[in-house]
């Protein structure tokens, strides 16, 4: 946090090419309760940022602000140099249209604590759903421009092939046609990861992806996430898995009461926390 752009000030920050996420002074209130009280955070491209903190500290809320599932009240968030949710002209902010917000969200994958798979669709359909919809939209645009139509069959098959490959990659090549209710928690969460990856995101957000799992299933999901990290995916992971943070994390951010209390190298913070609240929290989860 060397240089701070004051919210509302003209001009975007100079595009630091290797910054994937940049949040500045993010404030968020629900009614009269302020949940985020000025969060600053930077995540470099290809790095894994682990977000820790006690329940109610605002971790989920912050994650949801990054893909504009929640509107922030003050501050700015950029993903890959692009301001999230708003367009800035001069010192005036314009709300984005639904379509533009949707386009931004496609570049950001999100994995939820409770999986949130579509129960009426098979694993494969869960993964192909969003890419097929995007394809349909694109085709409509192509048609508007009177350009020749793309071969529909092939394209569709390509999406399916890619989805099957993704499911194969998370170790579910043999469960393509299972419905979520027929899969274990760990399998469901791996489908959810494949579903997010199908949009070919630049950034992945994980909100306690293993908290709803039986202990023996946590490992299989963490393994998939470790692979992703190794392949250079930029990730923000809210987790209580200290081992994961230590092993895979490039940075660790400890939040409490809507502010960042402490951040730094995960191994250093975990071994020697500087702040009292961090110490107390780590003592409980370790």
């Amino acid at each position: 946090m060397t240089e701070l752009v004051i919210p509302g000030q003209a001009g975007a920050p100079e595009a630091e090419s290797d910054l994937m996420v940049r949040a500045e002074q993010v404030h968020k209130s629900f009614g009269s309760i302020e949940v985020l009280k000025g969060i600053d955070l930077e995540v470099r491209t290809g790095q894994v940022c682990c977000l820790l903190g006690p329940s109610g500290s605002g971790k989920s809320t912050f994650l949801r602000c990054i893909n504009h599932l929640e509107k922030i009240n003050a501050g700015r968030i950029w993903v890959d140099g692009e301001l999230i949710g708003y367009r800035q002209r001069g010192d005036k902010l314009y709300e984005m249209r639904e379509k533009e917000v949707a386009a931004q969200r496609r570049a950001i994958g999100m994995v939820f604590q409770r999986f949130n798979l579509f129960p009426h669709k098979t694993a494969l359909e869960n993964v192909t759903e969003a890419p097929l919809l995007v394809r349909r939209e694109k085709r409509a645009e192509v048609r508007e421009q009177a350009a020749p139509l793309l071969g529909r069959r092939e394209k569709r098959a390509e999406v399916r092939e890619r989805a099957a490959a993704l499911l194969e990659r998370v170790g579910l090549g043999d469960r393509l046609h299972s419905y979520p209710s027929q899969l274990s928690g760990g399998q469901q969460q791996r489908v959810a990861i494949a579903r997010a990856l199908a949009m070919q995101p630049k950034l992945m957000l994980f909100d306690e992806p293993t908290s709803a799992l039986d202990p023996e299933l946590v490992g299989e999901v963490l393994d998939v996430m470790k692979d992703l990290a190794r392949e250079g995916m930029t990730m923000i992971v809210v987790t209580h898995e200290i081992g994961f943070a230590r092993e895979v994390g490039d940075s660790l951010v400890f939040m409490d009461g809507g502010v960042v209390v402490e951040q730094g190298n995960p191994r250093e913070v975990i071994a020697a926390p500087q702040h009292e609240r961090t110490k107390a929290f780590l003592a409980k989860v370790l």
């Binding site: 893909n67 969200r105 939820f112 759903e129 997010a196 949009m199």
Partner: peptide
């Protein structure tokens, strides 16, 4: 479930 809407929104659906 509200989570369904969130998941769909996060995937960029209108």
């Amino acid at each position: 479930d509200q989570g369904q809407t969130e998941a769909a929104q996060a995937l960029g659906m209108s």
